[in-house]
Amino acid sequence: MNFAIETQGLSKYYRQVRAVDAVSLRVHRGEIYGFIGLNGAGKTTTIRALLGMIRPSAGSVQVLGQAVGPNGRGPWRRVGHLVEAPAAYPELTVRENLEIARRLHDVPDKNATLRVIERLGLAAYADRRAGVLSTGNLQRLGLARALLHEPELLILDEPANGLDPAGVVEIRELLASLAHEKGVTVFMSSHILTEVDRLATRIGVIHKGRLIEEFDAEKLATLRSHRLEIKVRQLAAAQNTLAQAGFAVKLNASMLVLTEARAIDAPEEVAALLVNAGTPPSRLAVEQEDLEGYFLRLTGEKV
C-alpha cells in the first residue's frame, strides 16, 4: 500500500540520548494524523527526519512513496512544512518572504503568493516587515509558506502555536477542508490535545522517543475510561451508603466518583439508592475521559 508517510524503525541518537527510538509510522493518504507527546518526547526530531533535515541513526523514511535521503532528496515539490517556531527574514515583508518561497518551490503562477496571503488572512500585513509581526501573524506566515505550492502532504509542527482562539478555529477549519475537499494528508504534531481531538482522524502518541500507541480517532471513545461523578450535600453519609451497597467509592475534591461498570451502566440505580438513604444527589453524571486524561494515563504522567 502506498502511504503518505512510512517510517521503518526510525531512530535518532545523540550520543547516549535516544531522541527517537525505533518509530514505525504509517500515515494513510487523506488522513489527518495527530502526533502527540510531551516536550522532548521526540515529535520535532521525527518531523525533521521526515523532512530529511537530520540523518536517522537507524531505520528508513518514505514520504509520498519516495525515500528521503541525503542531499535533500525527497518529494518536496508536493510537501509543505512548518517546523517548530516559524522563521522569516525579518527585514523582508510578508509578500517578499512568500515570493522567495514561491520561487524556491518553482511555482510558476505569480498569483499564488497573493492567493495564499488572502487565504491566511494576511492581506493587511502583506507589506509589513516580518520582523515586526506578532507571534500569531508570524505563525500565519509560516502556514502560508507551507500551503503556497498547494502540497499533497502537510507536515506541521504545532500549527496552532501562537494563534488566538479565533485563529485556532480558523486554521482547524482550513486544515479540515483541505483534507476533506482536496484530499490533502495532514501530519501534525501538537501538545494542544483538544485541537488534535477535534481534528485528527488518527492519533499517534510518542513518549520518550517511542511510539507507544496509535489509534483511530473514532476508537478513542472506546479507549477512554468513564466514571460516574456524584455531587451530594451529605458527602460522608452518601459515601457510607454507597460503600455499604458494595461500590468502590473514590472521593475526589467535593465529589464522589464511581468507576465500576455497574455504576456507569445504571446511574439511575445509584441515584435511587442515595435518595432512599436520605442523601439525594445534587448532580449525577457519567463523564468521559478526554484525550488529555487518556494521554496522561497512557504516559503515566501526573498533572
Binding site: 523532512l51 518551490h105 518553482d106
Partner: peptide, 18 residues
C-alpha cells in the same frame, strides 16, 4: 541566526544550488 535555514532544506531547489 534568524533560524531560516530550516526553510531552505526541504525544497525542490537543491541545497547545493542555494
Amino acid at each position: 541566526s534568524d533560524h531560516t535555514a530550516k526553510e531552505l532544506m526541504a525544497l525542490p531547489t537543491p541545497r547545493w544550488v542555494i
